[in-house]
Computed example of a mutant assay.
Amino acid sequence: MVVSTNVPLRKLGQSALEISALGLGCWQFSKGRGMVGRFWAEMDQHDINEIVKMSLEGGINWFDTAEVYGKGESEKALAEALESIGLPANDALIATKWWPMFRTASSITKTIDHRIEALDGRTIDLHQIHQPFSFSSVEKEMEAMVELLKANKIKHVGVSNFNEDKMKKAHQVLSKHGYFLASNQVKYSLLDRSMEKNGVLEAAKQLGITIIAYSPLEQGILSGKFHKHPELVKKIQGPRKYMSFFKPAGLAKTKPLIDLLEEKAKKYGVSQTQIALNWLIHFHGETVVAIPGASKPHHVQENIGALQFTLSKEDLDEIDQVSRQVALFD
């Protein structure tokens, strides 16, 4: 396997860790297990292996999974895929997440060995708090993360779905111990730009925290295929077809943006999906990276292709203006 070296890398937060501007989201590797894992249809391990291999070959060097994705099945599937690839996969970076619901911060240290075991002993380069609701405070959660850092169980700390205040608090607690908050993973796309208005983006820029955008294509809406063929909505497996953007009114509202993405795709000789992803990882400099998923090989090709060009400032701004007319900001 030949890993691409042509993809520019950027720092994860204040760390020395260099990551590609796109990682691979691995929620879809959940094998259909658990409440969260049933969001996606079950994937065959052979297909998962191929998707991970193609991603690495294309220059994507990190993978985002989580404990709650299939109750560890996504982590296991990722580890198995990396093992099937062999030595070149040893440099693959792994981000996973602790699930806080109905738990206290002590669970972070108690469950870390389960995470390492699910990942077949591979290094956890980024360990994240999956969401801000638990039976413990942010302070106690970060203190638990410090224990893991000192024990060399994890390399860096991140959070997910944290608002501005909680993100700042997490960074403050870590700073007292000589560490830093590397990232905040939030929902962000051309159709959901809430983090630009709620203070998260500005605080991240000030503190040197990387924003990891999940659902960067709004579950496929930004590809344009559902606008051209609305009957495809009925064929979607899982609950995402009930999201507002998939309804007729949602498709109609977002059509001006979809039309512009199609226009830019023709200009650059790429796909609409690649235009949407390229905008996301360049409009805010190097602050925002994204984790599109991939359940089929052609999805991987789309992701890789988005790393091969850069939109002009004029096109970035034009897409920004049209997006503002249809996106959510609250």
Rank of each mutant, 00 (worst) to 15 (best):
F283N: 14
G199T: 09
Q272A: 14
A95K: 05
G158D: 00
L251P: 01
H299V: 05
H156N: 15
A92P: 04
L307K: 04
L190W: 11
E139R: 14
E139N: 13
G224V: 09
I124S: 03
R240C: 01
S20F: 04
R115G: 00
K241F: 02
Q28L: 03
E42T: 14
A151L: 09
G305I: 02
P297L: 04
F245S: 02
K31Q: 13
N303G: 04
Q206P: 00
R115I: 08
K168M: 14
Y69L: 09
D44G: 09
T111I: 08
E302N: 14
V157K: 02
P88F: 13
K253R: 15
I48T: 08
K169N: 13
K110T: 06
M167S: 07
Q45E: 08
A105F: 07
P297N: 11
V186H: 08
H227W: 05
S175I: 01
T123R: 14
I258V: 15
Q131D: 13
V138A: 07
K140H: 05
H127F: 15
V68K: 01
R193D: 11
W62S: 10
I319V: 10
K155F: 03
V7Y: 06
S175T: 15
T104D: 13
A118R: 04
H282N: 15
V52C: 08
I275S: 08
E314F: 05
N161M: 00
M35K: 12
L328W: 06
H282E: 11
A294Y: 00
V7E: 10
H156V: 13
P88E: 12
V173T: 07
V270P: 11
M43H: 09
G13Y: 05
F309H: 02
Y214E: 00
G224F: 13
